[in-house]
Each structure stands twice: as C-alpha cells, then as structure tokens.
Nucleic acid binder design. Structure first.
Length: 497
RNA sequence: GCCCCCAUGGUCUAGUGGUUAGGACACAGCCCUUUCAAGGCUAUAACAGGAGUUCGAAUCUCCUUGGGGGCACCA
C-alpha cells in the first residue's frame, strides 16, 4: 500500500488564543502523517487576524507542543518557507488585495453599517423568531457611491455577495456531498473595519496561495463550508479536498469538553492541554497513538502504533465522521505499552527529569540499572519517583508496622530479618541471581511463604510495601546500604516488642 | 428558532446486503506470582426506535429520538 499518492501540502492553522489541546493536536497529527507519508509538506500557519483575542505566548506554546509531539513542520512562522509570511496578521495587505478583486468583480461589496446597527437588527430578528442575517442594506449600493464613501474615509467592511437562490454543493471527504440552500447563507464579512481579513477570506486566500491540497480541520467549520466553497469559486480557484474531523466529547460521551470539565480532569491527573502531558508522565508516542485512534482506525485489531507505523499506515479513507469521547484510561494503557516498548537506555534517559524535578541527585549508571526493573511496573514516567525513589536515598524510614509480616508477630519478624541479615552479610556483593537461591532456601527452612519473608525485606530495604522486584532492587541499592537498612528494620521491630 | 452533521457494548472502534456482529480499554473471575504491575485464560456487554426497499438488512431510503456543530467586524 506504499502509495503512489501525490505529495500533499497540508496546514495546521490554529489561532494563538489559548492552549494547544487534544483536538488540535490530533488535527496536526493527521496533517503531519499525511505529509510524511506522501513526501509532501506540513505547514504551520498562525491565524491571528483578531488582534483583540491575541494571547501572548500562545504561539510559542503551540510550536513547543507540536515539537514535543514530534510533529515537525516544514514551513511556519519560526522556520520560514517559500509561502510566507506564515502569520496571517502579516498578510493583511495580501488579503485586502484579494478582497478588492472580489469587489471589482462583483462577488463582494463595501458595507458601511455600524456594529451597533447590526446588532440592533439582529436582536429585532431574533425577537421576531427570524433567522439572524444581514439585512442587505449595503448590498445594492451603487459601486460608484460605495467607492466615494470609502475614499471619503467612512469606516467600512467588505461583505461577500452570497447568491440569493439556488443550492451550493460541495464535498467533505468523510461525509460525501454537503448541500445547502443559498437562501440560508449570509453575506458574511470578509474584511473587518480595522482592515484585517476575517477567517473565511484569510484562510481561503492563504490556502490557495500556499497551494494547500487538503484542508483538515474541525467539524465546527462544516456549516461554513458552503461559503468557503463559494469564495473559492468566486476567485475561480479549485477547492482543496475538505476533511472535517469530528469533535472530541467529554469522557462520559455526553457533551463536549467544557472549562469546568477540564478543571475536574486536573484533579485526576489528566489534562486536555498538550503542555501538561509531559509533566504528567506521558510519552509523546503514547499521546500520538491514542489520539490517532480517536477518529481513525487501521483494521479490526491493530492498536499499537509507533510514529513510524502511523506514517506508513495512516489513511484518510478510514477516518470516521462521528464524535469521539476522550478516554483517559486508554491513554494510560497506551502509555504503559509504549514505556515497555522503549529501549532501557531510552527509558533511563526519560525518567531522569522526573527524579530531578523532585530534587533527587541521580547518576546515569544507576538510572540505567533501574530502567529495566521498573519498565513493566509503571504506567506514567513520573511514577518512577514514588516507586523507585529509594535507590537514590542514603537511608529509608519504614513504617514499623509495615515490617511485621502477615500472620507473624514483630518479634518473629525481627528474628527473620536477623537471619536474612546474617545470610546476606556473607556475600561480598548483592548479585540478584546469587542471593536469591539461598534466600529461597531460608524461606523453606523457616517454613514460611516467600511473601512473608520477602515482604519484611522489601519494606526494610525500600521503605515501601510496593517496590520493583526485591533482589534486583537490592543489587542496585548495594551491600552496605542493604545491610544497614535491614539492621535498622531489626531495631524498629525490636522496639515494637 | 433555523441550517448542517453524527448514531454498533460504559468508552474507542471493525463491519460497506447473507458474520456464531470481530478487536481494544474499563469492569469481574481464574491462572502465574516476593509486592505492584505485566502476561495468559474466562465472563458480562452493542447494531437508538419505527416504517420501508429486498428472498435477506448493523449495512440502502424515510421519519422519530438522542447527541454535536453553526447562525459575530472570533477563529
């Protein structure tokens, strides 16, 4: 199936008004996959024509988020490219030029209605249960008069002259033909009175100029799709392939993600913002794998995909149009799978920051030894600190009660610890495969279970009831610390009586 | 209110006229086991409802219901 597809040019076009979230990331992922698969280009374009909504730092966060996910773009505001600028605010004159062309050719007209009048008209229409729509006051102004008013400095906007009747048909890749009566369409504003183009014009012009072949975006654009098609046609341009992705719903599947919902998520250690995933211990490859499968599938059983797999196997044909509820437990599952798929050396490198974040002083040799023994015990990277922090501590402080083995007294537990201490102290090194057989023999001699004996030692050596495998852990902790920790445990048990 | 879109287990989905409706997550039980996991096995669980078309519908059509999106000088 290695395609003979033509190289695509696709763009991810977020507005810098907030955080990069899962929905955006998934759109960008699909863009990226398609571009890489076909040998085309993935472009980042910042849609910042609304200066009022501009959020400082948002663009940087988007770029950083895409890079963290591994979605390197070929052209964009901070990397340049042949179709720049890639920030729409810097393309104001270009947009105006094309708006003029539409006006000259009769596809658009100047409108001098004030926002105040417009909103009053709208309120009145709503009161009368009519559909809110521009009332057409300026639609039939004589071009010469309109031009005169423009030249006199009167504030104006440019509106698209939508056909009054007929039907506009266009095609969405996932849904087939989308047909709408032109009578239900509005004369949308193309250029605002501040001179900046509105999305509908800016995106259309830029997509054409940047030779975008596939427009992949959220389904919130579906209702304006006919207008976008009409604008393309007014310019005489071919339409790109339209791909409208379904939205993500909240985990319950009932309703879309809300601000409140997002806040609740944080309490459970989840987030919908890409900037948070690293700190929460997620791997970018897991996040990609997870969101790739929300709206796309490969076959009836394959679910684990590396980025390499995704690039090879992604296809637009298997996209689904129905909305998907975000399922964070599935993300946890994928994260576990991807952690286990890592080379231990890679895992060692990736867990390091989580230790350092908590103030641990680590060394790479030890990290390299820890990686393979925690690998199949953690689902998020940050867990490594609570599960395997004891490796980097001089000593641990067990809860005395935890040292008492199930079914035994403190006194008996102390006696077992003493015997283990005696046995272990005879070895010059704590090699796991060397000390395990005699330890098991000890268990047998004592007539106890492995769980009872090893449980005491686990708490003694790690300070925790839950830890990575005991003997491997003891090997890393090392002879001196192991013995010191067991001695301390003996003392604690004896103090209990 | 009007317009557009969507509809298979709790969730993500496979399925494009004939299948015992498949897989995954979650959940429950069992096995394995030095803890926690991981792994293995088993179980529970779905075609929203109603009309049609057809010898035969999860698959095609229509209606209803439910959900989502849009109706700005925001994107």
């Amino acid at each position: 199936m290695m395609s003979e597809q033509k190289p695509v040019r696709v763009r991810f076009a977020p507005s810098p008004t907030g955080h990069l979230h899962l929905g955006g990331a998934r759109t960008a992922l699909y863009d990226f996959l398609l571009a890489r698969q076909t040998g085309g280009q993935f472009i980042l374009r910042i849609e910042d024509t609304d200066r009022k909504r501009y959020v400082a730092g948002a663009e940087e966060e988007i770029c950083a988020g895409l890079r963290w996910l591994g979605l390197e773009y070929d052209e964009g505001p901070d990397v340049g490219g042949p179709c720049g600028p890639y920030r729409q605010s810097e393309r104001k004159e270009i947009h105006q030029e094309y708006a003029q062309r539409l006006v000259k050719e009769g596809h658009a007209y100047y409108c001098f209605c004030s926002p105040e009048r417009l909103s009053k008209v709208r309120e009145e229409q709503q009161r009368q249960k009519l559909n809110p729509r521009y009332d057409g006051t300026c639609r039939n102004l004589a071009p010469s008069e309109a031009l005169r008013r423009v030249n006199e400095g009167e504030p104006y906007t440019v509106r698209f002259r939508t056909p009054k009747d007929g039907v506009t048909r266009t095609t969405d890749l996932l849904r087939g033909e989308i047909a709408v009566d032109n009578s239900s369409l509005d004369d949308i504003i193309l250029v605002k009175s501040d001179g900046y183009a509105v999305y509908h014009l800016a995106a259309t012009v830029d997509d054409h100029l940047m030779q975008i072949t596939h427009v992949i975006r959220g389904s919130e654009w579906l209702s304006t799709l006919p207008v976008h098609a009409l604008i393309h046609r007014a310019f005489g341009w071919d339409e790109p392939v339209w791909v409208h992705l379904s939205v993500f719903l909240k985990p319950s599947g009932k309703g879309k993600m809300s601000k409140r919902e997002a806040a609740d998520l944080a309490k459970d250690g989840y987030s919908i913002f890409i900037k948070d995933f690293e700190a929460l211990g997620y791997l970018p490859e897991a996040v990609n794998n997870w969101i790739a499968l929300m709206g796309w599938s490969y076959d009836d059983r394959t679910e684990f995909f590396s980025m390499y797999d995704l690039i090879e196997k992604f296809n637009l044909e298997k996209l689904t149009p129905s909305p998907a509820a975000i399922n964070f437990t599935k993300l946890d599952h994928f994260n576990g799978l991807h952690i286990r798929a890592l080379q231990p050396g890679d895992l060692a490198r990736r867990i390091k920051p989580y230790y350092q974040r908590e103030g641990y002083v680590t060394d790479d040799d030890t990290l390299l030894k820890i990686a393979p023994i925690v690998q199949e015990h953690i689902v998020t990277l940050d867990e490594v600190v609570e599960k395997a922090g004891f490796f980097f501590k001089d000593s641990v402080v067990p809860v005395a009660e935890d040292l008492v083995a199930k079914g035994l007294t403190a006194r008996q537990s102390a006696e077992i610890a003493r015997k283990a201490y005696h046995l272990l102290s005879q070895f010059s090194e704590m090699k796991a495969d060397v000390i395990e057989p005699p330890m098991r023999k000890l268990v047998e001699e004592l007539g106890l279970t492995a769980g009872q004996v090893f449980g005491i030692l686990r708490v003694a050596v790690t300070g925790q009831k839950v830890s990575p495998p005991l003997f491997e852990s003891m090997e890393i902790v090392g002879r001196e610390r192991v013995l010191a920790r067991i001695q301390r445990a003996i003392n604690l048990l004896e103090a209990m009586g």
